[in-house]
Each structure stands twice: as structure tokens, then as C-alpha cells.
Design a protein around this nucleic acid. Structure first.
Length: 818
RNA sequence: GCGGAAGUGGCGGAAUUGGUAGACGCGCUGGACUUAGGAUCCAGUGGGGCAACCCGUGCGGGUUCGAGUCCCGCCUUUCGCACCA
């Protein structure tokens, strides 16, 4: 030390905490030493800490991404410190309409744009100090990745789980493109406000609906956020009911029409039938004099966009002229078509029971169709008039239902289904709302669906040895008027020999949905360095199912459901030995900005780069975790950052002051052990905000009255803070003379005996009202506590007579009832 | 309309799951050190009241010795889904 005069009296001022310098320094050391590399083959106690990979937008990372990733990073780092080999990979979900639309907007090719975005994301992610093993990064747009996405498609095709059918899509005639439902706003294209139409296109589907019962049943076994499980249950939408068969009066020999209903008990009230306009039997049954009206209505329905049809609740429809025979009453009832019946749910046909269904009631009222009461709730009779549909009738009794009168709704269902089944007119069935997954996109920016059409042999899967089917780099990737994918215009790519006969065939020109890319990426990570297999069996067995998955609840349904489905299929194919990919899933919350949702239009988007420049990544990470419960999100306020930064500043100073190895203060040590326990319990529960609060509390104790701190008091705090603020933790850990990374130094433990307080404040209540506290030993007896309490005048004055009853909670509370 | 989540100081949020409401942080007030402070440190900070005390967790009831927490009925916010038969 170069002793100037001042330093002989005052210790030299420690170097200032300079986050930019130490963060760059440690990120470099981590890279050089492979600190974040996971030993996938040899590592003991594997822990796969997965986070949902981001879409690398042109704007760069936003706080929401970093909030999600930091939460996962803390979880991963913590488990590493607790002795697990943690694998924390990250990648980019870079295909899809979002990128493509942006590319079109700025007039740049996505193949040029995306790599730049990815490079920028990578830079930002590294700045944030994530414990990611970048050797296993995946990029869904890289042929070495989508080769295997195409392979997944082929596995489903071979198993008969992929098929083609015509389906309605939203079409914007101005943008000349297919729109997703969320891009249709009030029946108009969200970008150009043109009226959206419906088009019928041949599309590829996966038979996920076949898996509905298993996808539902397995939910019981998953350790997932409750809200996510509920969302999945609702989406799968199991409903128990019956399929009932109605003969056609005008064509007694024809195949009866089957309807699905959840209320077979109300069949005596079925006064008409409605078919979806698209129902194939409409062509057969419509009488000539009604043909014109029916065709016009069907055309009108077809021209409507898919969203508008479902949003418009006004009842419209036309009569076909034909009649069905109600199998219960034997009566002929008119058959109508109406757009409120959807072809994709149930059988595309309903028996309308206007007395007990709101929609049917509205329709019957509009078209003056008969309404019959068949259930009477408490206080009602068979004659009680219906002024609106009586659908809250589950505990009512059947009426106007012949021999079933008087039965409860539940009994009526069972007996009527049995009766109709006996006549061959029905059976009990379970129906699911979940429909098959449409994976076709008539777009450019996605993996080509690996199929070749041959006039002689039909559709053929591209042989696995020929994968990947490379997405060609074409300059005109915009969609056009035809509704056919841009790839079809690329002649040299479009024509390909049939894999079966070798004659010239045509490639499938649709690309697949991005949810297919993300539906299996967690399988790829551990094997990302392998070009010969999609996933290595031994590594997969060791690392999967994913130990912990953290992500946003916006993917509660689709992404998580599709991933489960694909995993289940791969399991059935014998390719993986588990059915469920994610043993544990937790949904993180949403970050808002000063009470409002962040959005570009509001201009209140928080840019991480700027904040990291100003405060450092450690303070930024810690603040994100401090501003609210992780699973609920929080309100980002610029002012709040100073609090956590101050905490890190004080930690820095404390560590530099603590070079003396003096005797630690027992009071401080007790607080330390309490803090270790609190942080150790809070992190696995994702209660990051309270863990940080506990460390701040400890800091207040540690520095109280500017007391001199001892090394043994600070050193464990450096370890506790390390998952949150990894760079400063490494710097201070090395300051204490350690040569290994703090992340290889284990986790401090607490001593239960040291945690225990000698005295506690026992609350004393009189009639449940707090009247004072007593400083007593935690295991003071009721009698002693009572004596002490009554000796206290401020308490005793409320006890005018002997207490009638005494409630005593050891170490907590004494309540005197007078 | 259906389903989920949530309502606590000026603000973000704690509360051992029925036991001292408001931890921690922001902000604010006062003080110390300063040429200076948007730095640092110390103290205070739910409302009312001189005080003893009283009131207080969206609203109204209830259970209990005791309710932010449990039950019943409302209101509000918010996120999904939405003619699902």
C-alpha cells in the first residue's frame, strides 16, 4: 500500500461498485472457463431447467422476456448450488407469420433479417448474465433443426395421425393472404381493414382429438400451475351426452340424421332440428321449392369470415322443407339450417329444445317455432309459461314427457337414453371440444411440409434420407391472390420426383405451423450437437422429462397441449419412454408499466439495454424479481430500481469492509441463519420478492448504526445473493480469496439452534383485541404468561373480573375472554 | 355469457395459511455529514385524537375467544374462451 497521510488514519476507500466493468469481466471469465457448460453425459443429479424460448423480434429483447428468463435462471442457479447438474438451454422460435409480416413491411428478406435479430438477442441475453449453455442453442429456422421438425411430421403421417381435409380459413382479399383468427378484428383484416372472407382450402391436420381422453386424464398427474391445468381442461372441453338418431319423414329409407346433445332428457321438447349450413345432408333433403333460399343462405354463410360468424349472435336461418321424426314423440319436426350450428362441433346437427336452451329459444322466437316445457324447476308446473329459456333446470323434474314425467333431470337422461338405445335411436357418448390441429400455413416463412404429390402414386412422404426439404431462398416470398403458398411459384423447387415411382411429382407448397417447431424443441436441446438423430436415446432418457418448465400463461393451452400431444405420439411410437414432457410447469406473471400494459403505441416499453447501462444487469435482474410475486408479475417503475441498486452498493461496501476476521455478533449471526433459511425456502417456491426482502432486512441488521462487519457475517450473504446477482457475487467471492466460481461453492446451510429466538413478543389480547405484548421466552407456559400479563397495568385494566376463558397459543398469543 | 386470477397505506407489495395487519422497497418528513447534493448515513412515516383510546385489508351479512385469511350474498378490476348443442 502506498501510504499517504490520510490512509494512516482512515482505511482506504474501497473501489466504487462499477457494474459495467465487473459484469463484462465475469461474462468473459465464464466464457473462457466454460462455467455455464453442462456435462450432459457425466453430470450427476440432472436438472433440466427449461424456459420458453423467445421469438427474436427486430425490436430486441423486452423486459417481459428478461423477467421470464431471469426467474428461470435463478431457479437453475439455485439448483446447481444445491448439487444438481443443471441444464439451462435457450434458443429461438424464429419462424412464423409474425416474422414474415414484419419482413414484408420493412421490405427485407426474412433469411437476412432473422440472423441479425438472433445475433442481437444473443448479445442481450449474454448481457443479462444467464447461465445458458450456448453450445446447445437451437434455431427453428436452421435446416439442421427443421430437418427434424419435418421428420416429426413424417412420423405422424406414417402413424395415420396426419391427414388432409378441406377447412375454412379467413382470407383477406386485399392482402391476398390467409389470416389467423386473431388477425381478424370485427370481421376486418387488422392491417388493411378490408372485409375478410371465408375460403375453403385443403389443409393438413393432426388427429389430436383422438388423444383428447388421454390428454385430459394425464393432467391429474402433472405438477403444473393450477390455472394452466384449468385452462387445458376447459380447452379439451369434455362433455357427456348422447347421440340421437332422427329419421327423415320425406325419405324414410335414408340414413337418419345424428345429433349430439348434452340434454337427452329434453327430447320431448325437441320441436325442430337445425343443421350446420355445411352439413352434407342438406343437399339431399332440401325440397325443390326451398332450394333457392337454402343455397343463398349457404352462400352467404360461406362468404362470412370465420370470426364474424361466431361473434354475430342474431339468429338467422332457413327452412329446408324437410322434416325429421322425433324418436320420442313420433312427431314430424321441421329441419332448418342456421349458422349458429357449427359443423366442427358434435355432429353438425342439433335437436332444438327452445324451452331449455337460450339459443334455440331465440331462434324459435324469431321464426315462430313451437316451444314446449319439458322440465319444471321448483315452484313450476308443466303449464308454467316460458318467457325465456329455462336452462337453470338441473334440479327440476321432467314434465310433458309421457312415461318419464316426474323423473329428475339426471334420472331422465339415463332412462331416456336407455329407452332410445333400445329402439336403436341413440347411445350415450362423450364429446370433446378439442378439434384437430391444422398445421398448414399458406405462407413462405416456415418449414416446408415434406410431402410430394404424384399423379400415379398419390401423396408420398419425402423419404427421411432426403430431409430436410430446404426452404428455398426466393426473392418474391409475398403471398398472392391465389391462396396458394408462394413456394408454388418457384418452379425448380416445386417439381420433384415421386419417391415411389420416380416420375415427376409436385411438392406440397404449404409450410407448417410454428407450434410444430416449438412442439418438440425441448427434446432437441440435449442433442442439438447431433446431426444424425433428432434426439439421442440415452441423453433423452437421462434428461427428460423436463424437470422444471417456466413460461408465460399465454401458452397455457396451445403450445403446452401440442407439446404434450407430440410427446405422447412419440411415446406410442416407442421413441421416448415417457408420455408427458414437462413434469413441473409454472406460469410466470406479466410485467406492466406504471399500471398500464406495455405497448409500442403507448410508448411505455421498457428497454433493457438502457437500464442495464444505467444500473447494471445485476440490479436490473434483482429489481425484476423484487417488484412482485414471480407468478403474478408486477408493476415496473423506474424509481424502484434505486432500492435494489442501493442494496447491492451496500453489499459491495460491506464485503470490502469485512476484510477483518473479527468475532461475529451473535445477534447478527442469528439473523443470518434466519435469512439463509428464508431464502432457501423461498427460492424453490418462486417467492423471489420475499427472498430479496429477507436479504435486505439482513443487510439492515448487518449495517445497523454503521457497525463494523465481520467476514463471517457477509460471506454467506454473497452466496445467497448469487442466483439473483451473479456478477457481483463472483467478484466478491473472489475478493474473499476463493479461486473457484461461487456457483461451484455450494449453498450455505442454517443451524436450527441458531435460528431460534431467545425471547419473543407474545401478543396479549382481551376479548380478541390487542392490549399489549410481553417479551418472554418462546416456550413460556400459559400460567406464567397469564401472571405476567395481569401484572401489566395497561393489560390488567381491561380484565375487570377473572377471565372466563383463556386461549393460549405457545410463543404467539394469549387471549383473555372476560 | 362461461371460466380463471385478484381487490390491503401516497405507490409496488408482505403477513408463519385462523393468531400482534402493513415486512421489504419506492416516495415523503426531519436530522447528520457537506461548497454542494438527485450522493451517503441516522430517525420517523395507515387514518383520527393532546391523551387514554378509537377506526382500518372493495361492500353487506355470518362463523369464531380471535377473520386480510373460512362461509353466504354483492361490487369492481383483469386475463383467457366465446352460438361447443
Amino acid at each position: 500500500m502506498s501510504g499517504d497521510a490520510a490512509s494512516s488514519q482512515h482505511p482506504p476507500a474501497p473501489p466504487a461498485y462499477d457494474p459495467a466493468a465487473i459484469e463484462t469481466k465475469w461474462q468473459q471469465i465464464w466464457r473462457d472457463q466454460g462455467t455455464n457448460h453442462t456435462d450432459l453425459k457425466g453430470g450427476k443429479n440432472p436438472f433440466y431447467a427449461l424456459m420458453m424460448f423467445p421469438y427474436p423480434s427486430a425490436e430486441g429483447l423486452h423486459v417481459g422476456n428478461l423477467f421470464a428468463f431471469t426467474g428461470n435462471d435463478i431457479y437453475g442457479r439455485f439448483h446447481r448450488l444445491r448439487g444438481h447438474t443443471v441444464f439451462e438451454p435457450l434458443g429461438y422460435d424464429a419462424f412464423g407469420i409474425h416474422s414474415e409480416n414484419y419482413a414484408i413491411k420493412v421490405g427485407e428478406h426474412p433469411m437476412r433479417l432473422i440472423p441479425r435479430n438472433i445475433a442481437n438477442f444473443r448479445r442481450q441475453l449474454e448481457r443479462a448474465g444467464l447461465m445458458v449453455d450456448w453450445r446447445y442453442a437451437v434455431d427453428t429456422t436452421d435446416p439442421s433443426y427443421y430437418k427434424w421438425t419435418q421428420w416429426v411430421f413424417i412420423q405422424l403421417l406414417k402413424k395415420g395421425l396426419a391427414y388432409k381435409k378441406k377447412a375454412a380459413v379467413n382470407w383477406c382479399p386485399s392482402c391476398k393472404t390467409v389470416l389467423a383468427n386473431e388477425q381478424v378484428v370485427a370481421g376486418e383484416c387488422e392491417r388493411c381493414a378490408t372485409r375478410v372472407e371465408q375460403r375453403q382450402l385443403e389443409q393438413w391436420f393432426f388427429r389430436i382429438s383422438e388423444y383428447a381422453p388421454r390428454l385430459l386424464a394425464n393432467l391429474e398427474k402433472l405438477d403444473w400451475s393450477h390455472t394452466t391445468l384449468t385452462a387445458q381442461r376447459n380447452w379439451i372441453g369434455k362433455s357427456e351426452g348422447a347421440e340421437l338418431r332422427f329419421g327423415i319423414r320425406e325419405a324414410p329409407a335414408a340414413e337418419p340424421i345424428t345429433v349430439f346433445t348434452t340434454r337427452p332428457d329434453t327430447i320431448f321438447g325437441a320441436t325442430y332440428m337445425v343443421l350446420a349450413p355445411e352439413h352434407p345432408i342438406v343437399d339431399v333433403i332440401t325440397l325443390p321449392e326451398h332450394r333457392g333460399a337454402v343455397d343463398a343462405y349457404r352462400e352467404r354463410t360461406a362468404s362470412q369470415d370465420v370470426v364474424a360468424r361466431k361473434v354475430n349472435k342474431d339468429k338467422t336461418g332457413v327452412f329446408t322443407g324437410a322434416h325429421a321424426v322425433n324418436p320420442a314423440t313420433g312427431q314430424a319436426i321441421p329441419i332448418w339450417i342456421a349458422d349458429y350450428v357449427l359443423m366442427e362441433y358434435g355432429t353438425g346437427a342439433i335437436m332444438a329444445v327452445p324451452g331449455h336452451d337460450e339459443r334455440d329459444f331465440a331462434f324459435a322466437t324469431t321464426f315462430s317455432l313451437p316451444i314446449v316445457r319439458v322440465v319444471a324447476a321448483a315452484g313450476e308446473t308443466a303449464q308454467t309459461p316460458l318467457i325465456e329459456a329455462c336452462h337453470q333446470d338441473r334440479d327440476g323434474r321432467l314434465v310433458n314427457s309421457a312415461q318419464f314425467d316426474g323423473l329428475s333431470v339426471a334420472d331422465g337422461m339415463r332412462e331416456i337414453v336407455a329407452w332410445l338405445a333400445g329402439k336403436g335411436a341413440g347411445k350415450a357418448v362423450v364429446n370433446y371440444r378439442l378439434h384437430d390441429w391444422c398445421i398448414s400455413r399458406q405462407r413462405y416463412w416456415g418449414p416446408p411440409i415434406p410431402v410430394i404429390y404424384c399423379d400415379a402414386c398419390g401423396p408420398q412422404a419425402v423419404p427421411e434420407k432426403d430431409l430436410p426439404v430446404i426452404l428455398p431462398d426466393i426473392s418474391d416470398f409475398r403471398p398472392d391472390d391465389s391462396g396458394i403458398s408462394p413456394l408454388a411459384r418457384h418452379e425448380s423447387w416445386y417439381h420433384a420426383p415421386c419417391p415411389a415411382c420416380g416420375k415427376q411429382g409436385r411438392r406440397e407448397t404449404d409450410v407448417s405451423d410454428t407450434f410444430l417447431d416449438s412442439g418438440w424443441y425441448f427434446l432437441r436441446y440435449p442433442s442439438a450437437d447431433r446431426s444424425d438423430v433428432p434426439f439421442d436415446p440415452a441423453l433423452t432418457k437421462k434428461w427428460l422429462p423436463v424437470t422444471s418448465y417456466i413460461g408465460g400463461n399465454e401458452h397455457a393451452v396451445l403450445h403446452l397441449l401440442y407439446s404434450r400431444f407430440l410427446t405422447m405420439v412419440l411415446h406410442d411410437l416407442g421413441l421416448v419412454d415417457f408420455e408427458e414432457p414437462f413434469a413441473k410447469f409454472r406460469a410466470h406473471g406479466l410485467i406492466i408499466k406504471e399500471g398500464a400494459k406495455m405497448s409500442k403505441t403507448k410508448g411505455n416499453v421498457v428497454v433493457p439495454d438502457r437500464l442495464i447501462d444505467e444500473w447494471g444487469a445485476d440490479a436490473f435482474r434483482t429489481y425484476l424479481m423484487f417488484l412482485g410475486p414471480y407468478e403474478e408479475g408486477g408493476d415496473f417503475r423506474d424509481q424502484g430500481m434505486s432500492g435494489v441498486r442501493r442494496f447491492l452498493d451496500r453489499l459491495w461496501l460491506a464485503a470490502h469492509d469485512a476484510s477483518t476476521d473479527g468475532k461475529p455478533d451473535p445477534i447478527v449471526i442469528r439473523k443470518l441463519h434466519q435469512t439463509i433459511r428464508k431464502v432457501t425456502e423461498d427460492i424453490p417456491a418462486l417467492s423471489y420478492n420475499t427472498a430479496i426482502a429477507a436479504m435486505m432486512e439482513y443487510m439492515n441488521t448487518l449495517r445497523k448504526g454503521e457497525r463494523a462487519v465481520q467476514r463471517a457475517e457477509v460471506e454467506p450473504l454473497v452466496q445467497l445473493v448469487s442466483p439473483f446477482a451473479p456478477h457481483i457475487a463472483e467478484e466478491l467471492w473472489s475478493l474473499f480469496g476463493h479461486s473457484e466460481s461461487v456457483f461451484d461453492a455450494g449453498w450455505p446451510s442454517w443451524d436450527a439452534a441458531l435460528v431460534r429466538e431467545d425471547t419473543v413478543q407474545l401478543a396479549v389480547q382481551v376479548n380478541g383485541k390487542l392490549r399489549g405484548t410481553l417479551a418472554v421466552s418462546p416456550d413460556v407456559s400459559q400460567d406464567d404468561a397469564l401472571t405476567l400479563a395481569l401484572a401489566e397495568p395497561s393489560i390488567a385494566k381491561f380484565v375487570t373480573e377473572g377471565p372466563r376463558k383463556v386461549v393460549f397459543v405457545r410463543g404467539r398469543l394469549l387471549n383473555l375472554v372476560v
